[in-house]
Computed example of a mutant assay.
Amino acid sequence: MMEVMLNLAAVACLYLSVEYCLRHQSPKSLDDASLIPFADDPDVARRVEQATGKTINAVAPEVAKPGWGNVEV
């Protein structure tokens, strides 16, 4: 019985801590955060925009500077 009570207390603690961490987040900010993984690949961002209808602020990948390519150590 004590083990069940400790498990319930752990689940309640986890739930309350997640709620505490997300208390100032709006649905818009959470939606934007879910689209971040697609922002660095413009082709994938375009496909996700077509599939979901949500706008993704895609960023072009960084280009390697001359002389900073494959460096042998």
Rank of each mutant, 00 (worst) to 15 (best):
M1P: 12
M1R: 04
M1V: 11
M1G: 14
M2R: 11
M2N: 08
M2K: 09
M2T: 11
E3W: 04
V4H: 06
V4W: 03
V4K: 06
V4L: 10
M5G: 05
M5Y: 08
M5W: 08
L6V: 10
N7T: 15
N7K: 14
N7Q: 14
L8S: 07
A9C: 06
A10L: 10
A10V: 05
A10F: 04
V11T: 06
V11H: 01
A12M: 11
A12T: 10
A12F: 06
C13Q: 13
C13A: 15
C13T: 15
L14R: 03
L14N: 04
Y15Q: 09
L16Q: 13
L16D: 11
L16T: 08
S17E: 09
S17M: 10
S17P: 00
V18E: 06
V18I: 14
E19P: 00
E19G: 10
E19K: 14
E19V: 06
E19D: 06
Y20R: 06
Y20T: 04
L22M: 13
R23I: 01
H24S: 13
Q25T: 08
Q25M: 11
Q25D: 15
Q25I: 00
S26H: 05
P27S: 08
P27Y: 05
P27H: 08
K28E: 15
K28Y: 08
K28S: 13
K28Q: 14
K28D: 15
S29D: 12
S29K: 06
S29H: 01
L30E: 02
D31H: 08
D32W: 01
A33R: 10
A33N: 12
S34A: 15
L35E: 05
I36T: 14
I36D: 07
P37S: 03
F38I: 03
F38R: 00
D40M: 07
D40I: 09
D40R: 13
D41C: 11
P42C: 04
D43W: 08
D43L: 13
V44Q: 15
V44T: 15
V44H: 07
V44L: 15
A45H: 02
A45D: 03
A45G: 15
R46T: 11
R46L: 12
V48A: 02
E49G: 02
Q50S: 11
Q50A: 13
A51L: 07
A51Q: 05
T52A: 05
T52E: 01
G53P: 03
G53Q: 03
G53Y: 00
I56H: 02
I56K: 00
N57G: 07
A58D: 02
A58S: 08
V59C: 01
V59Q: 03
A60V: 00
A60Q: 04
E62A: 08
A64Q: 12
K65T: 05
K65E: 12
K65Q: 14
K65Y: 06
P66S: 07
P66H: 02
G67H: 03
W68G: 01
W68C: 14
G69M: 05
N70H: 09
E72T: 13
V73K: 12
V73M: 14
V73T: 07
V73G: 14
V73A: 14
